[in-house]
Amino acid sequence: MRERLDCAVLSTPEAYEWASSWIGCHAGGRLYIQALDGQPDSARLDSCRALADAAMHLRRYDVCLVPVSESNLAWVRTALQAAQTVLQTPVMALVRQLKAAALNDLYTLGLADFVRDPICPEELRVRIEQLLDERRYPVRDSPASALRETQAPYPVGVRPDETPQEKALCATILGRSGHELEAYAIATASRCATSKESFRAAKSKVVERFERAYIAAALGRHSGNIAMAARAAQKHRRAFWALMRKHEIDAAPYRTESPPPLRAPDG
Score class of each variant (00 low, 15 high):
residue 188 T to G: 02
residue 220 G to S: 10
residue 220 G to Q: 05
residue 225 N to Y: 02
residue 244 M to T: 06
residue 137 Y to S: 08
residue 158 V to T: 07
residue 151 Q to Y: 11
residue 147 L to P: 01
residue 237 R to F: 01
residue 241 W to T: 02
residue 136 R to H: 12
residue 151 Q to T: 15
residue 212 R to A: 03
residue 190 S to R: 14
residue 167 K to M: 13
residue 191 R to I: 04
residue 231 R to D: 03
residue 182 E to I: 03
residue 178 G to E: 09
residue 169 L to D: 05
residue 241 W to L: 02
residue 245 R to K: 14
residue 141 D to Y: 07
residue 210 F to V: 10
residue 171 A to Q: 11
residue 176 R to T: 05
residue 207 V to W: 07
residue 184 Y to R: 12
residue 220 G to I: 05
residue 161 D to I: 09
residue 225 N to Q: 10
residue 199 F to H: 08
residue 183 A to E: 00
residue 143 P to T: 13
residue 196 K to C: 11
residue 198 S to H: 11
residue 154 Y to V: 02
residue 159 R to C: 04
residue 195 S to F: 08
residue 205 K to Y: 05
residue 200 R to W: 04
residue 143 P to N: 09
residue 159 R to M: 05
residue 213 A to D: 01
residue 185 A to V: 11
residue 232 A to G: 03
residue 236 H to N: 11
residue 244 M to P: 04
residue 205 K to W: 05
residue 146 A to M: 13
residue 241 W to D: 02
residue 213 A to K: 01
residue 181 L to E: 03
residue 235 K to Q: 10
residue 241 W to I: 00
residue 193 A to I: 06
residue 237 R to H: 12
residue 150 T to Q: 15
residue 237 R to K: 14
residue 140 R to C: 10
residue 194 T to G: 03
residue 182 E to D: 12
residue 159 R to D: 04
residue 224 G to W: 00
residue 176 R to G: 01
residue 136 R to D: 10
residue 163 T to I: 08
residue 192 C to F: 13
residue 202 A to Y: 05
residue 185 A to G: 07
residue 202 A to K: 04
residue 174 L to N: 05
residue 220 G to P: 02
residue 180 E to G: 02
residue 181 L to R: 13
residue 173 I to P: 00
residue 130 Q to T: 05
residue 173 I to H: 00
residue 146 A to I: 12
residue 177 S to E: 11
residue 204 S to M: 08
residue 210 F to K: 02
residue 183 A to F: 02
residue 155 P to E: 06
residue 134 E to F: 04
residue 243 L to H: 05
residue 205 K to E: 05
residue 138 P to H: 09
residue 191 R to G: 12
residue 141 D to M: 10
residue 206 V to G: 04
residue 239 A to S: 09
residue 227 A to V: 10
residue 164 P to R: 06
residue 200 R to K: 07
residue 191 R to K: 10
residue 155 P to W: 07
residue 235 K to S: 04
residue 223 S to C: 14
residue 192 C to S: 12
residue 178 G to L: 09
residue 206 V to H: 07
